[in-house]
């Protein structure tokens, strides 16, 4: 076990874990933020997506010891204008089915719009294909991202 200070959503959290603990479990079990989900544990489903210094990261694929002083953002701390637009569009399109994958979907969608304000269908597929949805909400996800992009135009 070792002591780590994680900066998550602007707050510092002291935790004592094995250095090889995936960030996902530190976020969920040690910090108690359970919006970030576990789906596969092997960087294949996207349910555990967070931002590390603003960049999307699968939190199951990163050990706590590699986080250092980086700023972690989880779904609970997502406040960018893209995120707000995505959340509104998600509600308008009634995107979630069971909801399990959705925090990862929203994290990836907001990150996409931050980097590419007018994504094409192909851009969306390339950005989102690492986020698996067992309820197959893909068509609504794509439509909602287009709506969110439109709403951000002004």
């Amino acid at each position: 076990m070792a002591a780590f200070t994680l900066k998550i959503n602007g707050r510092e959290h002291q935790i004592d874990v094995d250095p090889g603990t995936p960030l996902l479990w530190a976020i969920r079990d040690n910090v108690g933020l359970t919006g970030t989900k576990y789906g596969c544990g092997v960087a294949q489903c996207g349910a555990c997506t967070v931002y590390v210094d603003g960049q999307t990261v699968r939190s199951c694929s990163l050990p706590v010891s590699a986080v250092g002083k980086s700023e972690v953002t989880t779904i609970e701390g997502l406040t960018s204008k893209e995120a707000v637009a995505v959340q509104k569009a998600w509600a308008a399109h009634d995107v979630p089915q069971c909801g399990y994958c959705q925090s990862g979907q929203v994290m990836s969608a907001a990150a996409l719009l931050g980097l590419n304000p007018k994504p094409t269908d192909q851009d969306i597929d390339l950005a989102m294909n690492g986020n698996i949805c067992r309820c197959a909400t893909y068509v609504r996800i794509r439509a909602a991202i287009h709506s969110a992009a439109k709403s951000l135009e002004g």
């Binding site: 995936p22 092997v42 960087a43 694929s61 990150a111 980097l115 590419n116 690492g130």
Partner: peptide, 20 residues
Amino acid sequence: PGGLACTTCHHEANFDAARV
């Protein structure tokens, strides 16, 4: 750009717990 970056999953070192 805006899509999946290598660094979304691949970091500075092998992470065997996730097989990445």
